[in-house]
């Protein structure tokens, strides 16, 4: 890892990644205790992608997210308390308990919401970018989706449209190699999703998605181009889920050796090592940051647990504006 990043920014990124890691571990723990209704899709292991991309964005830039979206929310600056409360189905959650784990949004920070229909966020990102252009703002949009979504028609329709109209979108493909239990090689004849960019006449890059600095640099370049009116970029981030697809999926479809290889590439472990090697932070300082993050997560859990559930009749509200 080499970097021209400021020390402050690196530390901030590390802090965010740690927050996501601890948050997700806590969600998993709460799930095991039967406190989380429904299902969960954890972002564990993919932290470098959301943080690397969102660090390259401004507060008023937009993102679209997916069913595996907790990390995107936190990276864009969402409040941990309201995020946790939403996951637990509480009235104080971002969506008043109407969305849950798969549908968290915070429109005040440009987080346009997580869609649980695979690939559905792509055209919405294009629309937000078109709107930014029509409103003459310099806002850009980062659109997160998985490699599985790149086989949806919306991938083609949306990137073609954004490229043709030269819209400010960064298409961020989080390639974690598996769409649920389906390995990429079983449903695609190519290895790199970024190759598909050529079909739309836009830049396509593949980066190590477990290297937050690499993700940040690629995103920063794409963001700069988008903001200058030079159109979209497709960034493929190769990454890996630490856990299964959802809930307690043991992910038996992944070879043991492969899992072990990827565990060695844990993005947080790597960033920690980099911070120490470059003397950016001491072990002690790292522990301090970790402790702070743990405290924030504990507070979020407390807030969520103590929050009331919605009144049942609220189910009939908020359908129309």
């Amino acid at each position: 890892m080499t970097t021209s990043l400021t020390k402050e920014k690196l530390i901030e990124m590390f802090g965010k990644m740690i927050e996501i890691r601890f948050f997700e571990e806590k969600v998993f723990e709460l799930y095991a205790q039967n406190l989380v209704p429904g299902t969960i899709h954890l972002y564990l292991g993919e932290e470098a992608v959301a943080v690397g991309v969102c660090t390259a964005l401004n507060k008023d830039d937009y993102i679209t997210s997916t069913h595996r979206g907790h990390g995107h929310c936190i990276a864009k600056g969402a409040d941990l308390n309201r995020t946790m409360a939403e996951i637990l189905g509480k009235k104080t959650g971002y969506c008043k308990g109407k969305g849950g784990s798969m549908h968290i949004a915070d429109f005040n920070i440009g987080m346009m919401g997580a869609t649980a229909v695979v690939g559905a966020g792509l055209p919405i990102a294009v629309g937000a970018a078109l709107s930014a252009k029509l409103r003459n703002t310099s806002q850009i949009v980062a659109c997160f989706f998985g490699e599985g979504a790149s086989n949806q028609g919306t991938f083609h329709e949306s990137i073609n449209m954004a490229a043709t109209w030269c819209l400010p979108v960064i298409f961020v493909c989080e390639n974690n190699l598996y769409a649920m239990g389906t390995r990429q090689s079983r449903v695609m004849a190519i290895e790199n999703i970024s190759d598909r960019a050529a079909a739309y006449g836009i830049p396509g890059v593949t980066v190590d998605g477990n290297d937050v600095i690499a993700v940040y640099k690629a995103s920063q370049k794409a963001a700069g181009q988008a903001r200058k009116g030079e159109g979209p970029t497709l960034i493929e981030c190769k990454t890996y889920r630490l856990k299964g697809h959802s809930r307690v999926d043991p992910a038996k479809y992944r070879p043991k050796q492969e899992v072990e290889e990827w565990l060695k590439k844990d993005p947080i472990k790597r960033l920690k090592q980099h911070l120490i090697e470059t003397k950016t932070l001491t072990e002690q300082e790292i522990q301090q940051i970790e402790k702070q993050a743990q405290t924030k997560i504990e507070e979020a859990v407390k807030f969520a647990m103590e929050s009331p559930t919605p009144n049942p009749e609220e189910a009939l509200e908020d359908i129309y504006a």
Binding site: F107, M112, P123, G127, A128, A129, L130
Partner: peptide, 11 residues
């Protein structure tokens, strides 16, 4: 989808 994205962002 483009219309949706544009609608929720002020147009």
């Amino acid at each position: 989808g483009t219309a949706v994205g544009a609608a929720i962002t002020g147009t």
